[in-house]
Nucleic acid binder design. Structure first.
Lengths: 160, 160
DNA sequence: AAGACTTCGTAAGCATGCTTATGTTTTGCG
DNA sequence: CGCAAAACATAAGCATGCTTACGAAGTCTT
């Protein structure tokens, strides 16, 4: 151990948030290693259960990732025979996503692991803090989603 | 618009946290695009300013990433002539990291952008909420760092 | 001193996220 | 109808994170 104290650069909340997210992801994937599914793949399946038949673009928007990001996750899920892409009969540009029955039990397993991992992370925090955290993060997500889209493209530029 | 309500799967705090971190990162990189530095590279430089001459392994531990992850970031920083690897005179396994003078002003620029991005994300949240958030995340980080290391390797293997 | 074990940095290979560019299809305007 | 514009999915290429595996260099044991 050196004598240098290096007091850390006051982890600016941005870094802190990123660290927590990364560690949570890491821990989850440690716990879920046996299942052969990553966290992102699970997230796709979980949403799919609620919205089977959704088009890739729509799901990407729901997940707030870029369409190409989702496309690659779906590639792997299709390779694993957990998901099917089916053409839309009306619009041949669109591919709709459907779950294979094998995916269902897997989703439940992931859920259990997710709950356990979350419990590890939140240990020692009372329910009030958890609620508070959820609420604050919700606000931040809204702020950021808006900032990203308006600052990025001025898509519709409706301003209202 | 379809008539399907799909009420979202109650973004389990894990997902929410991940989303916020991802969007914050995305937004930061949008804002910082002109500087030619990514967030991770900035983080390395920022720590380096406090702890010049640190060995790669030590810095990786400080950042709580794997050594290989840091090695690749340093590769790019060295390519950009912002950082130097220098051999340790005593231990030839070790490479110590030093900043080039060009990095200093860059760090300051990044700091400004970081502050601005954080402000965007936290808009509408009172200072009390921000403090609360920081505190809660700190607890979670501690929990997770511990869970990751004990659950991952049983390093010290307390009882076999 | 020699062999084993550990530590440091790195290589290889994968998954996820991004941006930018492409091809295909649908739509919309003349 | 026919061509331009928009929308959907994908390809290509990069950065970051991981795991696993390795070579080189210290350290420890015998």
């Amino acid at each position: 151990m050196s004598a240098i104290p290096h007091d850390l650069p006051a982890p600016t909340l941005g870094f802190l948030l990123n660290d927590v997210a990364r560690l949570l992801r890491k821990r989850f994937e440690q716990n879920a290693k046996g299942l052969g599914l990553t966290r992102a793949q699970w997230q796709v399946l979980a949403h799919l259960r609620r919205a089977e038949g959704i088009a890739q673009g729509g799901l990407a928007e729901l997940l707030e990732v870029e369409p190409i990001t989702l496309a690659r996750i779906v590639d792997r899920l299709e390779d694993a025979a957990l998901v099917e892409r089916r053409p839309d009969p009306k619009d041949r540009r669109i591919k709709r996503l459907f779950m294979r029955p094998e995916a269902l039990s897997l989703i439940d397993d992931m859920q259990v692991i997710g709950d356990a991992t979350r419990a590890e992370a939140l240990e020692g925090l009372p329910a009030a803090d958890r609620d508070h955290l959820t609420r604050i993060l919700g606000v931040m997500k809204t702020n950021l989603a808006q900032a990203c889209s308006t600052g990025c493209r001025q898509k519709e530029a409706v301003h209202g």
